[in-house]
């Protein structure tokens, strides 16, 4: 009787502990494999930036060289493409972040008629496939048929990038605003600050991390956008358009150098912001 009870109590305990042990190591192994899978293409991009291909096809490993890192813009057109991308990304980030932050303030801080429709209008561009966004802008530009909308130019790319960035900025800033303690603003008002002063001295500094995050997101979405740009660029060449254009004749390794540099700069910025946040959290 006691022996039966003892084995009955012991059996599940044993299987549970075996399961826990396996669970720990199998899951750990899985995470390592998954991260390796995610990193693999990035490693390949970096690897082929130091490859020395024969001719223009940079698809097979041949020999190590640092030549392309020493002349990252040694391909005609690449510098202009990167410069165009940076210009569009900078301007679209600036404008979209401003417009989007204003919308987020209105949506979180005020109750008004039509808030539902405003939310819907902000949500829709994020739920529409990029190809439809690009294609519909193209048909509109073509049907207008006059400058500055047609022929397509850097200006039409900018219009498109601001459009798709606004929604992402609203969502990011809104999240930060929603988590904000309203008592802080009310305290400022109680102490005699007017709305304008309260906004700039209390609200704005508090939501600034959200605005910076939104701007970084907008910048990275803009600089890497290909699909919408493909429809609104005309003859203008951005960095992704340069990659697409040189794909058939062979992508020069300098493109991999720029791609790797963008990755390193982005990782560096994230690392910096983490250090910065830790320091301000400690202070």
């Amino acid at each position: 009787m006691t022996a039966v009870a003892a084995t009955a109590a012991k059996a599940p305990a044993l299987s549970v502990s075996v399961r826990r042990l396996l669970d720990r190591y199998v899951l750990r192994l899985y995470v390592i494999l998954a991260v390796a899978y995610l990193m693999l293409p990035i490693v390949v991009i970096a690897l082929f930036s130091v490859n020395d291909p024969i001719g223009r096809s940079n698809f097979a490993w041949r020999a190590f060289t640092l030549d392309h890192w020493l002349s990252p813009f040694g391909v005609p057109g690449l510098f202009d493409a990167v410069a165009t991308s940076l210009r569009v990304a900078f301007l679209s980030t600036l404008i979209a972040t401003t417009l989007g932050t204003l919308i987020a303030l209105a949506l979180v801080r005020y109750q008004f008629r039509g808030a539902g429709s405003a939310n819907l209008l902000i949500f829709l561009p994020m739920a529409t496939p990029e190809i439809v966004l690009g294609a519909s802008l193209l048909t509109m530009f073509v049907s207008i048929g006059e400058p500055p909308f047609f022929p397509l130019s850097e200006f039409t790319i900018l219009i498109a990038h601001i459009m798709f960035n606004i929604s992402f900025v609203v969502v990011t800033v809104r999240a930060r605003l929603a988590g904000l303690d309203r008592n802080l603003e009310e305290a400022a008002m109680d102490l005699g600050a007017n709305e304008w002063t309260t906004f700039w001295k209390v609200t704005f500094p508090l939501i600034l991390p959200g605005i910076v995050a939104a701007a970084l997101l907008a910048f990275s979405l803009s600089i890497d956008d290909f699909v919408i740009t493909n429809f609104t660029a005309g003859r203008t060449v951005t960095f992704p358009m340069f990659i697409w254009g040189s794909y058939r004749i062979g992508i020069p390794p300098q493109v991999n150098v720029i791609g790797t540099l963008i990755f390193l700069i982005a990782v560096g910025l994230v690392a910096l912001s983490v250090v910065f946040q830790r320091r301000s959290a400690r202070a």
Partner: peptide, 16 residues
């Protein structure tokens, strides 16, 4: 992290 590199370059990496 993959989002910090170019979408097109990532896809071309898979070709390699």
């Amino acid at each position: 992290a993959p989002f910090f590199t170019s979408f097109l370059l990532r896809t071309i990496s898979w070709k390699i």
